[in-house]
Write a protein that binds this DNA or RNA. Structure first.
Length: 261
DNA sequence: CCGAAGACCTGCTGGC
DNA sequence: TGCCAGCAGGTCTTCG
């Protein structure tokens, strides 16, 4: 489920419930989601107090009075407040005022305790970045722009849907060599990324299959996708059928007429 | 640095 | 109805 807008939606929906609460107990039932150690995650979390909840790119940082609970939703993760545990519940956090569950079908997500904040591998958050920095970071990058946008150390938060949507909005072909973007086109892309992410947050993200917020509510931005998932359908701008190619191992959707190399 | 390929998981859809 | 291929909002590692 999760790119920046979906993660932001989830963070907003849990923050008020859990901030300031004390963790009574934690239980992890999937070895995969705690790739460090499951016992130490459970022990580290027990009795800790939640100080605040933040998002960094697609990562969720639950800051504690002693350490950090790091959560990543992977492809199919959900955080649910006061829901009944089910077949895909991988972790349970029992608080004084309720229960937070991590459900994750594919188990690509993470739920890990760190006594000390680990070093950051994520680049600047897409919403916190300014154009000058973005443009400077394109310098020397010979990668195609689409896979570069997916590279979390380059920019944090953009995933497959919003990369395609932003490139379409900026009329840039996904294979364009990043370093060759003129300042004008880079500016268009930068603006498009912000605009698309903010519009998606306003719609509480895109629900393709299972993204929901902490109370189980779906997002609706998928109905506004211009290219993602629209292979063969007419471009909303010019009517040309949207094309799907594979770039950097990922499905990539674009309009062959509006987005020229 | 860059791209391709394969892994890691599980479920769903479409075609035959 | 059944089975199989292909696909999925992510990330890692290895190799050339």
């Amino acid at each position: 489920m999760p790119e920046l807008p979906e993660v932001e939606t989830v963070v907003r929906s849990i923050a008020a419930h859990i901030t300031g609460q004390t963790i009574r107990s934690a239980a992890v039932s999937s070895a995969r989601v705690t790739r460090n150690d499951h016992r130490s995650t459970e022990q580290g979390l027990a009795a800790a107090r939640i100080v605040r909840v933040r998002r960094h790119g697609k990562q969720i940082h639950i800051e504690l009075d002693r350490g950090l609970l790091y959560i990543h939703l992977g492809m199919t993760g959900n955080l649910l407040w006061n829901a009944a545990p089910g077949k895909y519940t991988r972790a349970v956090l029992e608080l004084d005022n309720g229960v937070l569950l991590l459900n994750d079908i594919r188990q690509f997500g993470r739920f890990e305790y760190y006594a000390e904040t680990p070093e950051q591998r994520v680049g600047p958050d897409a919403l916190a970045l300014d154009f000058e920095t973005f443009f400077a970071r394109l310098h020397g990058r010979k990668s195609a722009i689409k896979p570069l946008l997916l590279n979390q150390s380059f920019i944090g938060g953009v995933g497959n849907i919003y990369a395609d949507e932003a490139l379409f909005a900026a009329r840039i072909h996904p294979r364009t060599v990043a370093a060759r973007l003129s300042e004008t086109r880079a500016r268009r892309l930068f603006d498009a990324i912000l605009q698309v992410l903010e519009a998606a947050i306003a719609r509480r993200g895109s629900t393709i299959s299972n993204h929901v917020d902490a109370s189980g509510e779906k997002g609706s931005y998928q109905s506004l996708h211009a290219v993602y998932g629209r292979e063969g359908e007419p471009c909303l701008r010019c009517g040309t059928p949207i094309r799907r190619i594979v770039l950097g191992q990922r499905s990539t959707h674009y309009c062959p007429r509006c987005q020229r190399v």
